[in-house]
């Protein structure tokens, strides 16, 4: 028994998210988490695909205009993710896969800076061909985001404890 998690699970907010029959409780938060996933992982994937040679006509440095939408998706997921964690803290925190997912998110986010500095930094109308190093970063980014999605999905199947005392 962890006293903090036991307390957290009994708070009004945690109970509401978990047990409210309202569609605006758990279902709405899960929906936000999925839309945010599509925006965050999807827009990062679109940039990675462009770096790897898809749609070469796209002025790559102009793709930075789409990144506020990517960050919107990311923060939507950070917030909805915390809410889901408050609803079922034991379920996530006792599952090693949850930490693996967080580590992959950390790597994927850490890659955004190095990738975007290299491809958004140069507004040259005739940019130099994209180097092998950036392409390797793009592949790593794709793998990380795919890993985040898959491990997130598998959290529903791999937990050993649902709540304190269960």
């Amino acid at each position: 028994m962890d006293p903090f998690l036991a307390w957290l699970e009994l708070t009004t907010f945690s109970t509401w998210v978990r047990e409210s029959p309202s569609v605006f409780a758990f279902p709405a938060i899960l929906s936000c988490h999925t839309v945010g996933m599509g925006l965050a992982a999807g827009i990062n994937a679109a940039l990675a695909l462009r770096i790897l040679g898809a749609a070469p006509g796209i002025a790559i440095h102009e793709m930075k205009r789409f990144f506020p939408v990517m960050w919107f998706g990311f923060w939507l997921n950070a917030i909805s993710g915390v809410v889901l964690l408050i609803a079922y803290p034991t379920k996530a925190l006792t599952n090693p896969l949850f930490y693996f997912k967080l580590a992959l998110v950390a790597v994927a986010v850490a890659l955004i800076g190095p990738i975007t500095r290299r491809v958004f930094g140069n507004p040259d109308p005739m940019p130099a061909p994209i180097g092998r190093h950036v392409k390797r970063l793009a592949i790593t980014s794709l793998v990380c985001w795919a890993g985040v999605i898959i491990s997130g999905r598998l959290l529903a199947y791999t937990y050993s404890r649902l709540m304190q005392g269960f």
């Binding site: 599509g38 992982a41 994937a45 985001w145 795919a146 898959i150 598998l154 529903a156 199947y157």
Partner: peptide
């Protein structure tokens, strides 16, 4: 679980490209 994972990967690919075009 495998089919769900694939379904979510496809979703992200669809949203990431189609929504960019719409935007």
């Amino acid at each position: 679980p495998a089919a769900e994972s694939i379904h979510f990967l496809g979703l992200s690919l669809l949203i990431g490209t189609i929504v960019l075009f719409d935007l």
